[in-house]
Design a binder for these strands. Structure first.
Length: 473
DNA sequence: TTTTGAGTTGTTCGA
DNA sequence: GTCGAACAACTCAAA
């Protein structure tokens, strides 16, 4: 009797518990299903880049299934209707999938689960999105953690990784179901890389054997490939987070802050924000601390447009925003810098930036993106607005001292001397002409004054906290 | 129940 | 140029 494995963001065959169980129960007779839900595809939070990446991955996943004598069934429409029809048509006994943390995903999954119960089909959700399940890391009082460091300590004690699950044995899918029909979404502006499982493994192995030991230092420099570059593969589950954690553990050294340890803690940050979204779904709409919903953001559309297009006049910010738009990815250090700049310098609501990131990032994930933005905006689990106003000049000097990153994405600054690369408006006029970069002509003059805006930001936050009562006035 | 120590990734000022 | 302290004051987690 066949079963269904409902692929969502676990687009791999190896180390996939839900697929493994579906294959086990169905004696190999698994219908590998992906549902293209028009509501999700048309959402304002999903951009062409991520869809293009997904479309590519569906094809490579199909090829990987095909090599096993199976194939991917891609269906278009409402998941509940599609799964019900398939169950009835093929006498399916159970449906397996990986649990998601996003509030709308949970509502959808609950509805599908109820439908299945009504037609006497078993549904099984697997907690494999995170390395340690969201419900499993709790304080002594049984409440979820909201501070990372104690969370991480407990998380480490719960870390219990068995061996990776093998690729299951699969029987052929009825031919009319595995037709190789893939979505043809409008082409994205960015180049889509090799999305195969093999490529993901190559990247992971390369990182583990060449760069993981230097990760703690190198990860901070946007011009250097110090990070693993795996975020999109993790986002779509081409690799499991557990597989990454196994690699990190295998490379731990006795140093307290080894590259592998720092990378493991980054994986734990991913888990941390997933469980924040799971336990506190209101963060998807507003501030983790509701008092900060009182901030009276000026939200100047003109400033926001300059930020989106990389025309703020602050080189490190502009380089980062152009990297996002041109490649669908942005270095983590740069994400913090532009998020701080949008909220603390341009005084624009962090949700505007959060949405723009979701529209462009191939690795865009609600939990991580929201957590990062709220951290930068000072509205999140670690609200310290007074300590967290990045200075775009000193960040540039610290983390892109020779300006390699800036010069790459802002070619009009290519010949600006190092001394001025993060503040080109301070060049003497004669020098501007000499290097072919007249500020205000070849490159924008700064659209705001950082030290002035810093003062405004502090006042905005102070006013918000002083507002009483909070939120529901 | 109360107390205590600490909180991813910073910046600025003055010595 | 480098260093340490102040920033402003709150909440969490655990003892």
């Amino acid at each position: 009797m066949p079963t269904i494995h409902w692929f969502r963001r676990d687009l791999r065959l190896a180390d996939n518990q839900a697929l493994h169980m579906a294959a086990h129960e169905g004696d190999g007779q698994v219908i590998p299903l992906f549902v293209v839900d028009p509501i999700l595809v048309q959402s304002a939070r999903v951009g062409a880049n991520r869809l293009a990446w997904l479309a590519q991955r569906l094809q490579t996943l199909h090829a990987e299934l095909h090599a096993l004598g199976s194939g991917l069934h891609v269906a278009y429409g409402d998941p509940e209707t599609i799964i019900q029809k398939l169950c009835q048509q093929y006498a399916v006994t159970s449906v397996h999938w990986q649990r998601d943390t996003a509030p709308w995903a949970q509502r959808r999954d609950t509805a599908v689960g109820l439908m299945l119960r009504n037609i006497n089909v078993r549904s099984v959700m697997h907690d494999t999105l995170t390395i340690v399940p969201a419900q499993q890391v709790l304080t002594d009082k049984g409440t979820p953690y909201t501070v990372f460091t104690p969370y991480y300590r407990r998380w480490r004690t719960q870390l219990n990784l068995g061996d990776a699950l093998p690729v299951p044995t699969l029987a052929p899918v009825p031919t009319q179901l595995a037709t190789g029909q893939f979505p043809s979404w409008s082409a994205s502006a960015i180049p889509i890389p090799d999305t195969s499982r093999q490529q993901a493994l190559n990247l992971l192995n390369h990182f583990a054997s060449n760069r993981i030991n230097d990760y703690a230092e190198q990860r901070n420099y946007p011009a250097v490939s110090g990070s693993a570059q795996l975020s999109a593969y993790l986002r779509f589950g081409v690799l499991s987070a557990q597989e990454c954690a196994r690699v990190a553990l295998a490379h731990l050294t006795h140093e307290p802050k080894s590259g592998a340890e720092v990378w493991l803690s980054q994986l734990a940050w991913r888990d941390f924000y997933q469980q924040i979204l799971f336990h506190f779904p209101h963060v998807a709409q507003g501030a983790f601390r509701p008092i900060y919903d009182n901030i009276a953001w000026p939200n100047d559309e003109r400033l926001f447009a300059a930020w989106c297009t990389g025309q703020t006049g602050y080189p490190i910010v502009d380089a980062a925003m152009r990297q996002l738009v041109q490649t669908g990815w942005m270095h983590n250090r740069a994400r913090m810098i532009v998020a701080s700049f949008l909220t603390k310098d341009l005084l624009v609501d962090w949700r505007w930036g959060e949405r723009f990131f979701m529209q462009h990032l191939v690795d865009g994930d609600t939990a991580a993106n929201n957590g990062g933005w709220q951290w930068a905006a000072g509205t999140g689990t670690d609200a310290q607005p007074y300590f967290r106003i990045f200075n775009p000049m000193s960040q540039g000097e610290k983390f892109d001292s020779d300006g390699a990153y800036v010069r790459h994405y802002c070619p009009e600054l290519a010949n600006v001397p190092h001394k001025y690369i993060h503040a080109p408006w301070t060049m003497p006029p004669l020098l501007m002409h000499e290097v072919g970069c007249v500020v205000g002509h070849d490159y924008p003059a700064p659209i705001v004054d950082h030290s002035v805006q810093r003062g405004h930001a502090l006042q905005l936050y102070k006013d918000a906290v002083a507002t009483d009562p909070p939120h529901d006035a």
